[in-house]
Simulated assay, not measured.
Amino acid sequence: MKTIVMQNPLKEKYDHDDIAVAIGFFDGIHLGHQQVIHKMIDIAEEKQLKKAVMTFDPHPSVVLNHEMKRTTYVTPIEEKKEIFACMGIDYLFIIPFTSSFANMSEQNFIRDYFTLNHVKHVIAGFDFTYGKYGKGNMLKLEDDKDGFEVTMVQKEMIDDDKISTTNILKALKSGETKRANAMLGRPYSIKGFVVQGEKRGRTIGFRTANVMPKEDYVIPKVGVHAVRFKLLSQNKTYNGVCNVGYKPTFNDPSVNQLTIEVNIFEFDESIYGESVEVEWYEFIRDEKKFDGIDALIEQIQQDVIQSKQILSNV
């Protein structure tokens, strides 16, 4: 897959074959996004066009909505690249979402990013908008198209609710991990590195791997989760229980440092610096402060049992 960042002068970016392009922000690449991309692939193969995806970075809210800007992602840009490459995409176009881009007219957007860019077919979801103030929509794109065809993909539903990144974010933050995973079509995951922690876990019989995300991922709800832990260098996967939080039993309440710590079952290796992936399956309980170490140990033992039960059904 060739990645093309659409920075000026744009005419230097047009040196590629004719394409069918799926366009959207695609955070999560959830089941709804996948429908758009699979539709693009079908059209590209039918028309003998190259398969392309066009997305934006950063999230438009960074420019358009300072009070509600979003700087964490279900699939940060590097993860998007990996997923698109695995889907067999030929070209990935990344449009830097800047103030000047946000002010671009609908006509100029169509001309610069579609017509001149060898686009022969545009595929997008029903709610895709473009141009200044987002005034352009899929119906208008059909009317204003110039040298290309347009296909609109309808929304995907689950349990009478729209599959959307917004709903996935709500589910992850409220502990409804199974619901988020159902909308994603796969377990939510975070890639990162194992870093040095305070090493308190080993003193109470529960060694943990302290995971630092390598990108700006959305972190699931604070508390205890059933997870699977992938050691990427060895291509091995282990079951585990993960605490996301601030370790109130040990830490001063004024210390506000979020950690992701995984107790890996049946595992006793030193893996500092290793690249890993944490897959999230089910929220178990909220984080709480215990009166003493014995009460904490007893609760962790229960968490381990519950996590093993959950993951035995995966």
Rank of each mutant, 00 (worst) to 15 (best):
Q257P: 00
D286Y: 13
I293W: 02
N239P: 13
K236C: 09
K214H: 13
F283P: 02
G245E: 04
E277K: 14
Q301I: 06
F265A: 00
S270Q: 14
R285M: 12
V244I: 15
I271S: 04
S189P: 01
L231D: 02
F250I: 13
V262P: 02
F290N: 01
L296W: 07
K236R: 15
K289S: 09
F193W: 06
V211P: 05
S275A: 10
V244T: 03
F206R: 14
N251F: 14
Y217E: 07
G240R: 02
I204G: 03
P213W: 03
E287A: 09
Y238G: 08
G192R: 10
R202H: 10
G201S: 09
D268A: 07
C242Q: 06
V262Y: 00
D291E: 15
Q301S: 12
F250L: 03
G197L: 14
T208E: 01
Q299L: 09
P248F: 13
T249A: 06
Q306I: 06
A295S: 12
Q301W: 01
Y281C: 09
E266L: 09
M212L: 12
R207V: 00
Q234R: 07
R207Y: 07
G205T: 09
Y217K: 07
R200F: 11
I284Y: 04
I297V: 15
V195F: 10
L231H: 05
L231G: 05
I204E: 03
K308D: 04
A209E: 05
A209V: 01
S307M: 08
I264D: 00
N256V: 13
W280V: 01
E266Y: 12
Q299S: 10
N210H: 11
V227C: 06
F283C: 05
I293T: 15
D291A: 13
V218H: 02
I293K: 14
D286W: 05
I300H: 01
V218Y: 00
K199Q: 10
Y246T: 02
D291F: 13
K289D: 10
F265V: 01
C242K: 01
Q234E: 08
T203V: 09
F193H: 12
L231F: 10
F229A: 12
K247C: 11
K230Y: 03
A209K: 04
K199S: 13
E198T: 08
S189N: 15
Y188F: 15
A209Y: 01
G223V: 06
Q257C: 00
T203M: 10
P253C: 10
V211N: 07
E261P: 02
E282L: 10
K221Y: 12
Y188R: 03
R200K: 08
V227G: 00
E266A: 09
S270V: 08
L231V: 15
K289G: 11
I284N: 06
M212G: 00
V218D: 00
E266P: 06
T259K: 15
L232K: 15
R285Q: 08
P213G: 04
E287Q: 13
V304Y: 03
E282M: 04
V304N: 04
Y188H: 11
D216P: 04
K199T: 09
Y246W: 13
